[in-house]
Computed example of a mutant assay.
Amino acid sequence: MASDSDSSDCGILNQALPIAKLPKNYKPNDAPASAEEYLHHVVWEARQCQAVVTVDLEEHRLNKPIAVVQKQVKAAAPDGFTPSLESQQNLLASFSKLRAHIANLNASGRKPKPPIPLPGIKKREEWCKLCFGNSFQLALLKQSHQDSVQPQLIEGKQPLLSILLNIKQKGIENLLEWHGQWLEVLGFSEAQGRWFYSLLACLEKPLTPETCSQIRHIAMMCARIRASLETADHPHLPQLNVIICIVARYFCQEDLVDH
């Protein structure tokens, strides 16, 4: 940008705009009042830059170890514990049919009324009681060895369509997150297997990154529980396989697929 007489300041750069030399009385602290004064200021700033700049490196910082995050790997299933490809395909077909039915009911606006008043979408403890009754609470009391008088057993509700269709999508996502937490605390149950299947059937695509991470975590835990089963006749095995298959194949988590 400098004139021919200032070409030494610009090295091998070609002149872009014609401009006269800087005035002898040039004051760089004054704000440019014209385009020419602005170009003078650009030339002056360029002259302040060093031709070569070096940095003194601190050797001890270069040798600092870097944390490596290892990707979680699904627990391998024992021989004979995974469903056949045909079984998985049949499962996905029936699951897709159920999701289409749910979508049609939502689109029609003909939602059946829930059999009971539903808690708010942030009422974690109330939803726990609705899904499991107070068996979860009783198990926690037993786990903590509390000697207080335990409440009478109350049965949880089945994941009926009349309940599920009246839960907003944010509530579905919250329930999946909470069920994942409950699974970590007390392990797997048939009631929870039914709720997992039903909630996944109501989960809309595309998934948020948080929800995708959550259902992956659930499938990984189910795979870990499956790997710990002593026999392929265990009553939990079919439900565990269903959850893993749906998350892996329907929600496209290919690294979790059972081959």
Rank of each mutant, 00 (worst) to 15 (best):
A2M: 10
A2Q: 05
D4T: 06
L13C: 10
I19W: 08
K21M: 10
K21S: 13
L22R: 05
L22W: 07
N25K: 06
K27Y: 00
S34C: 05
Y38H: 09
Y38P: 03
V43C: 09
E45Y: 07
C49Y: 08
V52F: 08
V55C: 09
E59G: 03
R61N: 03
I66F: 13
A67Q: 05
V68T: 12
K74T: 00
P78A: 13
G80W: 00
F81E: 00
Q89C: 00
N90M: 07
N90L: 09
A107F: 00
S108F: 10
R110P: 03
K111A: 09
K111L: 15
K113L: 15
P114W: 06
P117T: 10
G120I: 06
K123L: 11
R124M: 14
R124Y: 10
W127F: 15
K129C: 11
C131V: 15
N134V: 07
S135E: 15
S135C: 12
K142Q: 15
Q150C: 10
L153M: 15
E155C: 10
G156Y: 04
G156K: 05
P159F: 08
S162W: 12
W178V: 05
G180P: 02
V185R: 07
E190D: 13
W195E: 01
F196D: 04
L200P: 02
C202R: 02
C202V: 00
L203G: 04
L203A: 02
L203C: 08
P206L: 02
P206R: 05
L207D: 04
E210R: 06
I218N: 03
R226M: 08
E230L: 11
T231C: 09
A232H: 07
H234E: 08
H236I: 04
P238S: 09
L240N: 01
N241V: 04
V242Y: 02
V242M: 12
C245R: 03
I246S: 01
V247D: 03
Q253M: 12
D255H: 11
D258M: 12
D258Q: 14
H259N: 14
